[in-house]
Structures are given as structure tokens and as C-alpha cells.
């Protein structure tokens, strides 16, 4: 039998995280595989969407003036865009399903609780999916309305700015809403109110967080197709999706841990200390 080395000293309270920053390092060090597994589940839920987008992007490469007249092309591109949006809305529900489970896993991780991955993932879906999907449909409906509205603007810059404005007004609140739902059992309207409260209280961080969430997508714009020839465009599509896969495995799950830790620190400050002392600073070990 192989001889085993033991630690000479007890693993003490002082070795445990006492700040959120330490908590992140701790989760990263001790639970990397759990976070990675969460990423795998996110990726699996994204696969239909990725496949759909690849098909649509390849399809778009054939929508050129060589194949259509200028007047027809405008209509065809509009229909293409509409299909992409409808497809996205439908297939993203699968991602919301996965996020419901992943959020519970992340919550347990930052609370330093034991995890039975598959059971807790399923339990997360059971607990979170309904409020998550309702929030998502509210959010996506507002987005689609904004998208349709911006089509009426002749000035493309104004159109883009409308979408950016939507992003600034609604996306951080939507994310705060998800973190709030993950912790508290309350009516949706209360979560919406809370999410705007916390968004306003943490404006800088919230916008930075959304920017970080968008970062892989912004990077993928470097590989914007339909500029070069078919071969290069095809390679760009592959690169873009490989980047997305990597981001889903190694970036987004960790960003969710950061978001969860940060949101918990704010929940502690404004809610938990007074109303939920049992989860106040949960996962942090100040002293025994």
C-alpha cells in the first residue's frame, strides 16, 4: 500500500476564507472541478443554440448580391434576422434551464456547503426554473420590442444606441434578479424591485459585470464574417464558436462565482444582517 502523507497540522478556521476575495480563491482552489462541471452543463445546454447559429451563419454567407437582387436581399436578410431572433429566444430557454441548476451549485459553493452535483443541479432546476424562465421572458420580450423599435430608425447609429440603452437599463437588473431569486423565496415583483435597488447601489460594478459577460461576444466580433471570402468566413465561424465553448467552460462559470460572491456581500449588507441572520456572511469564517 502506498504510504500517505498527512498534514502535520489541523486544517483550522484561520485557513478558511474570511473575505469574499479569499472565498473566490478558496472556491477556485478546492472546487475547480465542480465549477468546471457547471461549465460543462452550461455548454451542453448551449449546444443546440451553437449548432443553430452555425447553420444560420453559414446560410447567411449565401445571402449575397450574387444570389439576390438588392431589393430582395433586404427582405431576405430581414427574414434571416427574424429567424435568428426567434430561434435564439426558443433555444435559450434550454440555457435558462441549465442556469437554474448551475446557480444552485454556485450558491452552495460560496456558502461552503456540501454538494451532490447531479442531485443539487436537479434541485436547482426545480427551485429556480419557474422564476428564472418568467424573468427571462419578461426580459426577452422587452428586448424584442426594443429590437423591433430600432428597425424603424433610419439612422443605424441611433438604432444601435437603442439596443445599448436597453442593455444598460435592463441587463444588470436581470442578472441581479437571478442572483436574488437564487437566494430568496419571494414574489417576482419583489425580486424586480430588489434587483433595481441593488443595480443602483452598485452601478459601477454592475455595468462592469455586464461588460465582462459581453466580453467573449465582443471579442468574437473581431471574427465578423461576410467581409472576406467563403473560406475565411467559415474559419471565422469556427474560431468564434470555439471561443464561445472555451468561455462557457472556463470563463462564465467563474464569472458566476464572482457575481454570486459580490451579490451575497451586498445582500448581507442590505438584507441578511437584519432579516436573514442565518445566512449572513455564510461561507466566511471570521472567527469560531
Amino acid at each position: 500500500m502506498r504510504k500517505r502523507n498527512y498534514s502535520n497540522v489541523d486544517y483550522s478556521y484561520s485557513s478558511l476564507p474570511s473575505t469574499r476575495k479569499e472565498a473566490f480563491k478558496d472556491v477556485y482552489r478546492h472546487n475547480f472541478m465542480t465549477i468546471f462541471k457547471s461549465g460543462v452543463f452550461l455548454l451542453l445546454s448551449f449546444l443546440p443554440l451553437i449548432a443553430f447559429m452555425i447553420v444560420m451563419e453559414i446560410n447567411k454567407m449565401f445571402l449575397t448580391l450574387d444570389n439576390y437582387s438588392e431589393s430582395d436581399l433586404f427582405g431576405v436578410l430581414f427574414v434571416w434576422d427574424l429567424i435568428v431572433h426567434i430561434g435564439f429566444v426558443i433555444l435559450f430557454t434550454l440555457v435558462v434551464l441549465s442556469l437554474s441548476g448551475v446557480f444552485r451549485i454556485i450558491k452552495l459553493l460560496v456558502f461552503q456547503e456540501g454538494i451532490d452535483f447531479f442531485y443539487d443541479f436537479k434541485k436547482g432546476i426545480k427551485e429556480n426554473f419557474k422564476p428564472f424562465i418568467i424573468s427571462y421572458f419578461i426580459y426577452i420580450t422587452i428586448y424584442l420590442l426594443t429590437y423591433l423599435l430600432q428597425l424603424f430608425f433610419l439612422n443605424q447609429f441611433v438604432g444601435i444606441m437603442t439596443l445599448v440603452l436597453f442593455h444598460i437599463v435592463f441587463t444588470p437588473a436581470f442578472i441581479w434578479g437571478l442572483f436574488s431569486i437564487n437566494i430568496y423565496d419571494a414574489k417576482l415583483i419583489k425580486h424586480i424591485k430588489n434587483s433595481y435597488f441593488f443595480y443602483m447601489k452598485t452601478l459601477g460594478f454592475s455595468l462592469l459585470y455586464v461588460f465582462m459577460m459581453d466580453l467573449p461576444i465582443l471579442i468574437s466580433f473581431i471574427f465578423y464574417e461576410n467581409i472576406f471570402g467563403f473560406g475565411v468566413n467559415f474559419i471565422f465561424i469556427i474560431i468564434k464558436n470555439v471561443l464561445l465553448v472555451l468561455a462557457l467552460l472556463f470563463f462564465y462559470p467563474f464569472l458566476l462565482v464572482v457575481g454570486s460572491l459580490y451579490s451575497n456581500s451586498k445582500f448581507d449588507l442590505f438584507i441578511n444582517k437584519l432579516h436573514y441572520p442565518e445566512i449572513y456572511q455564510k461561507g466566511l469564517y471570521k472567527s469560531k
Partner: peptide
């Protein structure tokens, strides 16, 4: 407080 620790780190 050790629930999330791997046993190889323990005394």
C-alpha cells in the same frame, strides 16, 4: 467547516 475540503489536506 471542513465539508468542502479534500481529505488529503487534513491532519
Amino acid at each position: 467547516f471542513l465539508l468542502t475540503r479534500k481529505t488529503k489536506y487534513l491532519s
